[in-house]
Nucleic acid binder design. Sequence first.
RNA 1: AGGGGAGUCGCCAAGUGGUAAGGCAUCGGAUUUUGAUUCCGACAUUCGCAGGUUCGAUCCCUGCCUCCCCUGCCA
Length: 563
Amino acid sequence: MSEQKAPAPAANFIRNLIDEQNAAGKWGGRVETRFPPEPNGYLHYGHAKSIFLNFGLARDYGGVCHLRFDDTNPEKEEQEYVDSIVESVKWLGFDWGEHLYYASNYFDTMYACAEHLIQSGNAYVDSLSAEEMRAYRGTLSEPGKDSPYRTRSAEENLDLFRRMKAGEFADGAHVLRAKIDMTSPNINLRDPAIYRIKRATHHNTGDSWCIYPMYTYAHPIEDAIEHITHSICTLEFEDQRPFYDWLLDKLADGGFFTRPLPQQIEFARLNLTYVVLSKRKLIQLVDDKHVDGWDDPRLPTLMGARRRGFTPEGFKRFTDQIGVSKSDGWIDMSVLEACMRDDLNEHALRRIAVLDPVKLIIDNYPEGRSEDCFAPNHPQQPELGKRAIPFSRELWIEREDYEETPPKGYFRLYPGNKVRLRYGYVVECTGADRDEAGNIIAVHCQYLPDTKSGTPGADSVKVKGNIHWVSARHAVETEVRLYDRLFAVPYPGKERDYIEDLNPASKRVLRAQLEPALKDARPEERFQFERHGYFVADLKDSRPGAPVFNRTVTLKDSWAKEK
RNA sequence: AGGGGAGUCGCCAAGUGGUAAGGCAUCGGAUUUUGAUUCCGACAUUCGCAGGUUCGAUCCCUGCCUCCCCUGCCA
């Protein structure tokens, strides 16, 4: 097995920053990151980028990466999502040891911090309605104005906040706000809300709280509590960094945390062509049944990727390849597909499957006779051995491997042409039978008995074409699903509603004829079906002795391009 | 419009005051019992545009243009 060389990780602005800080001794060489999903949905390809970034940095710098659930909004979060997230991160190959955390575990500390902010004059209880608050906030180009409640005394604020916590007020009656600057050009600094009253049962803390911290407020505290050094998030949080720093600075002054404080760093999230990665759209695709659930192999979720046959190693190659930067561009789906092919090419055993079967009858081969042909499990790795494939008079071949009037450059079966039946004999095509409607029902040929693969005469006849086949008598028939890109266009929704851009041919279900060895494929076992692509035995629908296969990705096909 | 970001080959992406890595894609060619893989070769006189500083600028300065994000008691 050829071991992957591990080249030095590509330089990126985050690694450069860490190197500089290490040189300056800022963290004493410590690198501590976190992957902080909100458990309100399933992880998707974009999360894979973040996971490899955060866990990868920690690994490469000898640090740790925490898995932390950012569960500050009980209305949207569920245990089912945390379970699925845990499973997906593990599947990608990462281990957080004992560093599994929940924002909700810090609610007491967050509350104490809030009281301190109130006492130090940095937060106040506002009693404006949501609409009023919006009006007071101003606009992008006009400054906001102070709420009439902004000047409440620390005592009054503390009393009100404690009563908020005690459940004396209705949802939305009051909100705790940081007191910063209503005229700031950065809207995030115009006294952002940091606590709201919300009577909802939390998946972790149940009904013990009726006030919950906002992400903006909670996240920096979570980072500080866990001694995170580099808090990596996506670009849209850039405007929030000043608040992140403001908050931690105030709390450090208050003795809650010590400096140096964690630092927020933003990178460009993944944009991938031919799919959508927004949570809202993913939910709609599932709810409106455009796909078959959250783990539909066409969906860009990690659960879908797994059923599709994508590999963790393929995702690693992918994230290594696309890099990390602050310019938000689009990665073409072909890059991900190429990464999966690279990994699969190396690791998947080769097998034969006829997906669109038509009979090939060898008229000069004795009826009732059969013999074994031997095929390598991996052409580049002979140490993986060979397997026997039965050969007989009637075979299944691909319908597209016969053309009565071949296009230019076609070198498969057509009357008069010779072709090798891969790992078997060279045959000469003599024609085909058609039904009354003109459909081809069987192709006929004569075999050349001296040309069997592996025998001295194998190369006595040179042929260009080489097609795969399966003995009709021995074949295993099974369901094979041909998956393709979910959307028919690179940028779904660009020209019209994205639903209209769905690829109608993203899933095709076939009955295929497979070589006998495939009968016992185990769920998640991956193969290359020669000349077709990579396939995986479906995790959910396969049964012992009756696998169902999903196409992961096709092989590159330069003939298709030529046509 | 105010604020925050980004602009280097078709798509990503390194790089730096000294004369443009790499990957994907593409195009040639070799090997091949997968029209696969592998291999070899080609592929930015040029770094959004315009000025300026400099012996020399993609890197520094000035102005401009384009794109993305921000007005949730979401994250």
